[in-house]
Design a protein around this nucleic acid. Sequence first.
RNA 1: GCGAGUGUAGCUCAGUUGGUAGAGCAUCACCUUGCCAAGGUGAAUGUCGUGAGUUCGAGCCUCAUCACUCGCUCCA
Length: 539
Amino acid sequence: MAKPKEKNSELMEKIVSLCKRRGFIFQSSEIYGGINGFWDYGPYGAELKKNVKDYWWRCMTRHRDDVVGIDATIIMHPKVWEASGHTTTFSDPMSDCLLTKKRFRSDQIDPQDGQVYFYSGARESLSGKCLNEPFSVLLGEGKNPGSAEKVARQYYESRGLTDPELILDRTEKVLGSTGYNPENGAQLTEPRAFNLMFKTYVGPVQDEKNVAYLRPETAQAIFTNFRNVQEVSRQKVPFGIAQIGKAFRNEINPRNFTFRSREFEQMELEFFIKPDSVVGADADKEPVDIGSPAADWGWSQWHKYWVEQRLRWYESIGLQRSTLELYYQKKEDLAHYAKATVDILYKFPFGTEELEGIAARGDYDLTQHQNHSGKPMDYFDDEAKVKYVPHVIEPSAGVDRLVLALICNAYAEDEVVDDKGKSETRTLLRFHPRVAPIKVAILPLLKNRPEIVAKAKAVQQMIQPFMSVFYDESGAIGRRYRRQDEVGTPFCVTIDFETLGEGDDAGLKETVTLRERDSMQQRRMAIADLLPYLIQQIN
RNA sequence: GCGAGUGUAGCUCAGUUGGUAGAGCAUCACCUUGCCAAGGUGAAUGUCGUGAGUUCGAGCCUCAUCACUCGCUCCA
């Protein structure tokens, strides 16, 4: 099994290298040695990411009657995070075993009773070298005292002493201690808080009263704005509020390129629905048509609907269903308030990992904010003539993860055989035209023919207002095609003598060669048809 | 956070037992080139991750630090 893994990490290295080389993704603050968990997007990466966000926004808000968008601040009132539960759940106390270095969540260690052996240090019997480092071991009831000594000796050996003689300070009976490794009795470090939220201070004075946090998710601003938005948009439940924005988490260990970053961007929708009791929904009933919402849908049907909507969306930007996996979170793993959560995973080279989570969260969030703020979050339903706190379905996607998935998915190495029969590798990114950073490259066949160059520039100017265009006149035409392949440009347009009406076939005047990236096929197209064709391809 | 590994030009890497740095590709200019890269000529490029130490002298040795990769851990 080691072999495919190695192959995958090689693939990942090639992708990372391409990202750097062609200007998709750079390490943040690189000239200062970089900073762990932060990444920048270069020219092509920024275009790609922007295309992804724009397309999500278009599909989720503008193309729908029942979703509106907001754009909220990153820093919010600290009570927001108390209500959401992040202040408590995002700071787990952790302790490490001094001997094995294994890490424990302090609140999950079973309390133990027994005798604690306190050592003040140890000395080497041969050299007399002394180490005055205190260490203690908890000996469970009815255990051989020798085992405590054994653990202590191992500890001092790990600190560089050979054949250490223990210096016992004292022993003490304890009850319900969580300060020792339940597996070997070795002392744990003091619990340290692992606060996953970035802390900052509002105002110039750094006082505990001014503490605020950078949001760990964008969703909470949707809940806090629920009443405002519902009123001004004149939306009726069911309806949704969408938002795209930065979020921050002090990840313990950022990994896998941009996949787990400390600063990242989310695309979140909170879709508010009527409680099942109001519509008389049966959670076990399958929706008749998963694509068309019905009046009697409850949380279960809406949840399935959004999973399907999101899958279709991923397909529409080139992530085939075969590259995705659905993970239905197990009951015991669900947060206590969640009714169901489905993760959409992508098969990355480094493993199958989450792109988006679609959670049915009941009325937990609005109720929490209602309780903490004292402001009503309920909604009067004109049709049903009842008041209720809406329930919510939350499709929450990571933009940076998706961008990385799109790059991984697009990366391909083709074997191409040239006319001399020599085979070579063609590296390309098969981006869907919708997300490709450059839509079309304009290439004059020869750069030393002013008429061709002038015509190419005219074509460029015609297209430029409508999409990202790249003009390139340097080097052989084949090389320029390959350069575009490597950044995923779906179309190349070449201007030649025929375009000018100077070729053998005068009928080709005002036509260009349109070369398609994936098939490398070329065809002749009238300049007049070019723009409508391209616009249709990228929308 | 722990353990192991890596860090030399934009990228991939070479650099002998310590003697003030090289290749290929890429880039730029000019020429060439009539549709799938790597033809010619020329040019630019690095405080060898960063900081300290040992040394007459460090890319090479020592320590620290930062970043990346892998494994553990973590992942509301």
